[in-house]
Amino acid sequence: MGADFGVQLLQTILFGVMLGGVYALAAMGLALLFGVANLVNFAHGEYIMLAMYMAFVFSVTIFQDPVLTPLFNIPLFFAIGVITYLGIFKRLIKAPPLSQIAATVGVLVLLRNLALAIWAAEPKAPPYTVFATSFSIGPIIVPLDKLLAMAVSFVTLFLLNLFLERTRLGVAMRASADDVEAVSLMGVDTNRLFLLTTGISLALVGLSGSLIMTYQAVTPTSGLLFGLLTWAIVALAGLGTVKGILIASIIFGLADSLASGLWDPRGREIVLYGLFILILWVRPKGLFGRR
C-alpha cells in the first residue's frame, strides 16, 4: 500500500513536471507581450485554444500525425500575431488597462464563439502520434510523446533566452520591459518592436497549442482554462526571466497533476485557481510591483 502510493506519487510528480514544462511555453508568450509591450491580453487563452484546434486540424488533414503540426502552427500564429497587432493591439498600446482589458475581452468573445461555430462544443483530440509509446524506469512509466513535448518546450525556451540575451532585438525587448520611453529615446522603433513581440508571443502560443494536445482534447471553453492558468503563472513568476516562468509553470504543472491524480480530476480547477487567488493576495501587485 505504502509502496504503491509512493509509486503513484512519483508518477504524478513526473507528469506534473512534464506538464509544467509545456505550460511554460504558453505562459512565456503572455509574459513577453505583457512585459515588453505592457499590453494586457485577456484573450491569450483563446489564442492557445485556437492553436490547439489548428494542431487538431493539421494533424487530421495534412500530416496524419500531430508531431509535425508545429511546422504549420508556428508561422501561422506568427502571422496571426502580426494581424492582431496591426488590427487591434496597435491602438491599445498606450490605452489605460481598463480599455485594454475591454477590447481584448471582445477578442476573447469573438474567438471563443468562432471556435464554437466551426468545431461545435464536443472535445476534439488529434490522432495518436507515432511517439505515443512509453518506456519504464523501474515502476515509473514515462510516456515518450509527453517527454518529447517537454523537451521541445525546454529547447524553445533555451533558444528564446539566448535570443533575449544575445541579439540586439532581444536586448531591446528586455530594455523595453524596464522602460519603454528610454528605449524609444535610444532610437528603437517601438512600433516595430511591439509588432515583432506580438508575433513571437503568438508563435510561442502556436507551438504550445501543438504540445498541449499531447495531454488533452480541446473545446471552445479550453481558452478560459489556459487563459487563467497562464496569467496565474505570470503572477507567480513575475516578468523577470525565462527561468522564473519555467519554475512557476512547473509548480502549476505539479499542482494540476497532484490535484487530478490524488484527488479528483474535476477538482483540478479548484486547486489551480485557488492557488492563483492566494498568489494574488500574497503578491497583489503581481510582477514585482509593476502595474
Binding site: 482589458i101 480547477e269 485557481y273 492563483f276 487567488i277 494574488l280
Partner: peptide
Amino acid sequence: LKEVWYALSSLALVLI
C-alpha cells in the same frame, strides 16, 4: 488587488 489582477481573480471565483 486591482486592474487585470482583480478581474482575473473574480473570474477565477466563478470557475472555483
